[in-house]
Design a protein around this nucleic acid. Sequence first.
DNA 1: CGGCTCCTTGAGCCCAGTCAAAGTCCGTGG
DNA 2: CCACGGACTTTGACTGGGCTCAAGGAGCCG
Lengths: 235, 235
Amino acid sequence: MNAFVAKLQSYVDLTAADRRALAAATERTRQVGPRQSVIDEGDEPNAVTVILEGWACRYKHLKDGRRQILSFLLPGDMCEPSVFLLRHVAHSMATLTPVTLARMSEETVRGLMNRSQAISDAFNYDMLIDTEIQREWTVSIGQRTSAERLAHLFCEILERLSIAGLIAGPEYDMPVTQIDLADALGMSGVHTNRTLQEMRRVGLVSLRGRHLRVHDLQGLQRLALFNPRYLHRQR
Amino acid sequence: MNAFVAKLQSYVDLTAADRRALAAATERTRQVGPRQSVIDEGDEPNAVTVILEGWACRYKHLKDGRRQILSFLLPGDMCEPSVFLLRHVAHSMATLTPVTLARMSEETVRGLMNRSQAISDAFNYDMLIDTEIQREWTVSIGQRTSAERLAHLFCEILERLSIAGLIAGPEYDMPVTQIDLADALGMSGVHTNRTLQEMRRVGLVSLRGRHLRVHDLQGLQRLALFNPRYLHRQR
DNA sequence: CGGCTCCTTGAGCCCAGTCAAAGTCCGTGG
DNA sequence: CCACGGACTTTGACTGGGCTCAAGGAGCCG
């Protein structure tokens, strides 16, 4: 069972047939190297993309070069399940690591949703959580200080990886540069660097060699004003 | 035909029967005064809320009192059509003006979506656009300067009101305080005030007595780096 | 007319941005 | 095995956009 089916299963009760149908729909995979574009702003969306392995991100570029990363996509994540309703997408997507992805055509997605209410619900649930995450990013960037923002992002990803069953302890590979972090959190690279050093100094987390270790989870969550309820972990 | 049906109709082709079903589902309305809470963080969502008249907003409070407004809800806007899948909501909603709203039960929504693929698509389309707006807010708060942010918000709402057929010219009532604006844009009230004055001074817009007048739409859009495509206006 | 709420203004400060240079790490090819 | 180059991280110095605190004005409603 791939990460995608596993995640959907954590949302709702899927029958064995549902799981088989989902697995079949994401059977044909494609390998993409790191730092490759997957979807470009303006593209016509003809398929729903699913990340099976690796990290990717959504982002937007402003004309003058400023970039905002909108979200990190982890194994099991999908783009909007009804994206094919749009004439064009308004943001881009690129890989961060080598990625294994699958694409489901509109026909496939509609077939899955018509066949099974549970699958339909699971897709909608996933979309809801994706939106919740986006809203929490708005809160972070709008209200949280730089240290709180970094802390919150680390907490979010820890929780998401944990929900997906991809990690056990309080550490994970975080395959992004400090500039990526900066562009995700709406701060400068230099300031991101200094804030990370400060968090390291006070013993909250250390991020070295693209690996994040959380030394004081409670302290990190307290600093971040992190409340995991918005991620709607089940059971 | 209420604002809600009108908006959905602008997304997809609805049959007369679809329109009647949607109108019937939003027939029973409720009046809510200005500055009233509609949904509180943690509530169990038992219905889909639709704004028929007036303005409302989504927001989140942090424990220490900081507030981030996540979006403004205009006539015709609805909350997430599949919100009833969640055990609890992670944000609050409150009115800004007197509001007429309708509530559709889970049963009603599922009935509508099962009955008509067009309605189902329209709901999903609306949710997609809601997410697009949220993403653009992330970009604004993360990357745009204070003047650009204000300009972008004014452009967004102008375009949304225009899409909904609620205005003709480049002006509209904007029933929010400067503090509300500040909390929406992640800036302080004082700085919002000064930035508004500067925009007035250079002749872009004037916001007085809760009424916004755009004096130089092109200039405003240029300043905002505004590209309306993310709102997916049809035809 | 009194008392809200909201808007406006001034002064001072600091968080975070920019610019620029140096240091570190790592993969590649000689 | 080492030298080189490129990408990324770290540091220092300086600047400035935007925040806070605080007080005064304006508008509105009972």
